[in-house]
């Protein structure tokens, strides 16, 4: 009798567990593929398309359950791809090229920024920078080790300038030296920090301008979507669906008609940026994601990648050529 009771109890527990499994809302989750997408930086206007694709169901429609994870200075999407913590990520071109030079097996799926947002802000009333030679004798902020250092050195070299003709000052996230005018030319992401800084200076009745290296021939690729070669080989269909959904999300996010919804999606993660500032940031981002309406969002600018590799090789940042173009996959989702 006791044995029968125990058997019945076990049977009841098994049935309950089974029912619980059926009831779990993850029923839907199990039907979708689990994907982790690691961004390069914190969520802001530069990640509008990524966030929008997630919040508006672009991934779900492709049967993908994508967890968009914010990046940061201590995060490295390429490392996470290799360690299996993420399946897709965002990395800058210099990160990709460095990783390839050290044997990482990484593939570029799409280039999000057609224009590199990394530019230098300065007070327009103090001086004008219309050509690299105008930088002579001025103090220029650079983040030593960052890609702004690489870009500035490439710019000076391409203009035939010696580095002794300028004063390079190491900077970090604190803008005090710029506000105090100790470092009058400061590196910023034009579409995010650039808007915040120009608003602050405008409040003090100061005008600002931006110095864009791309306008002077230095085309250094910024954020791109990457995955591992293993993922590419083993799950090409997932890669295709992910890229398709992501780029569709970006396209929708960049439509002015969707601005309010995009801001709503961003505000969930970025509560510190006011809506008017976000609106200006989105407007600036649009010009960088799709600088030419004839070129689809996500298009990989092969020439710019080649130039980025050449710049890095010339500065000794990679030991030798890696033929980055062989690792670009322009057709993965377009």
């Amino acid at each position: 009798m006791k044995k029968i009771r125990i058997t019945i109890r076990i049977a009841v527990w098994v049935v309950l567990l089974f029912l619980c499994n059926l009831w779990i809302p993850g029923g839907k989750v199990f039907a979708e593929e689990q994907i982790v997408y690691r961004l390069k930086w914190l969520i802001n206007a530069s990640t509008a398309g990524d966030v929008f694709a997630s919040s508006q169901g672009f991934f779900s429609r492709e049967k993908l359950n994508v967890e968009v994870k914010a990046g940061g200075p201590e995060r490295d999407a390429i490392r996470e791809l290799e360690l299996g913590y993420a399946q897709f990520g965002v990395a800058s071109a210099d990160q990709v090229i460095r990783a390839l030079s050290k044997g990482a097996r990484v593939k570029v799926l799409a280039q999000l920024f057609q224009v590199n947002p990394l530019q230098w802000i300065y007070r327009a009333d103090a001086f004008t920078l219309t050509r690299p030679m105008d930088l002579a004798g001025k103090t220029i902020g650079i983040t030593y080790g960052g890609n702004d250092e690489t870009i500035m050195r490439a710019l000076l070299a391409s203009a035939g300038m010696d580095e002794t003709q300028v004063v390079l000052a190491g900077v970090r996230y604190d803008y005090t030296p710029f506000f105090q005018n100790k470092v009058p030319i400061w590196p910023v992401y034009r579409n995010t920090q650039g808007i915040l800084l120009s608003d602050k200076l405008k409040a003090g009745e100061e005008r600002v301008s931006f110095f864009n290296p791309a306008e002077h021939g230095v085309r250094f690729v910024a954020n791109s979507v990457v995955t591992s070669k293993k993922m590419m080989d083993q799950a090409p269909e997932t890669v295709r669906r992910f890229t398709k959904a992501l780029l569709a999300g970006w396209e929708a996010a960049m439509m002015p008609a969707n601005e309010t919804n995009v801001i709503r999606a961003l505000t969930v993660h970025d509560r510190d940026t006011s809506k008017p500032v976000m609106r200006s940031q989105l407007a600036a981002t649009r010009l960088m994601i799709q600088s030419n309406p004839d070129i689809p969002i996500g298009t990989i600018d092969t020439e710019a990648w080649r130039q980025t590799e050449q710049i890095m090789a010339r500065q000794g940042l990679i030991p030798g050529p890696i033929n980055v173009v062989d690792h670009l996959n322009p057709d993965s989702g377009l």
């Binding site: 460095r98 030593y144 080790g145």
Partner: peptide, 20 residues
């Protein structure tokens, strides 16, 4: 690491930027 342009902490920061 957070507030200087010299020393080994600063060099570590640069190495981190370069993912080295």
């Amino acid at each position: 690491f957070i507030a200087a342009n010299a020393g080994i902490g600063y060099s570590i920061r640069i190495a981190l930027y370069q993912s080295d």
